[in-house]
Every structure is written in structure tokens, then in C-alpha cells.
């Protein structure tokens, strides 16, 4: 639905990192699909955002933002 506030396992705040991650991931994906050398990989983005443990990384990597789908319903 919407990105959780904290990591389920360790409790680190990860909600604020998701938007920036998606933004930078789009740039990576565009470059990758065009066959160019991307400026940074998802690994480097996560490292730079300070998300070190794999429990927090999976929160960001595996999240699907679906709140737009349910937005018409109150």
C-alpha cells in the first residue's frame, strides 16, 4: 500500500528513504534500458542513503506502492 514507516525487523526509519530511492532508481533504469553505463547502481543508492542492513534493504527493494489504486475509495 504505502511504504512502512520503520523496518519490520530492526525498527530503523526507512519511510523517508523510499521516495529518493525511487527517483534515483528511475534514472538508473533509464540508463540501463538504453544500454548506457548507469551513474549509480541500486546497491550504491542504498549504501548512500545509509540503509546498511539487509532487513532494511529488503523493505525498500521489495516495496510496491499501491495507494494510488485504492485512492478512489474512502
Amino acid at each position: 500500500m504505502i511504504i512502512p514507516v520503520r523496518c519490520f525487523t530492526c525498527g530503523k526509519i526507512i519511510g523517508d528513504a523510499f521516495e529518493e530511492y525511487t527517483k534515483r532508481y528511475e534514472i538508473y533504469k533509464k540508463a540501463f534500458d538504453a544500454g548506457e553505463n548507469p551513474k549509480e547502481t541500486p546497491k550504491q543508492i542504498l549504501d548512500e542513503l545509509g540503509i546498511d542492513r539487509y532487513c532494511c534493504r529488503r523493505m525498500i527493494l521489495t516495496h510496491v506502492e499501491l495507494i494510488g489504486e485504492s485512492a478512489p475509495f474512502e
Binding site: I2, V5, I13, G15, D16, G68, A71
Partner: peptide, 13 residues
């Protein structure tokens, strides 16, 4: 910590 999303609003919500 002022960048944590609580909910996303659409239209007139």
C-alpha cells in the same frame, strides 16, 4: 525527521 510519508492524498481528500 520531517520526510516520513504518513498518507498520500488524491483529489479532494
Amino acid at each position: 525527521e520531517d520526510k516520513i510519508p504518513i498518507v498520500r492524498l488524491y483529489g479532494e481528500q
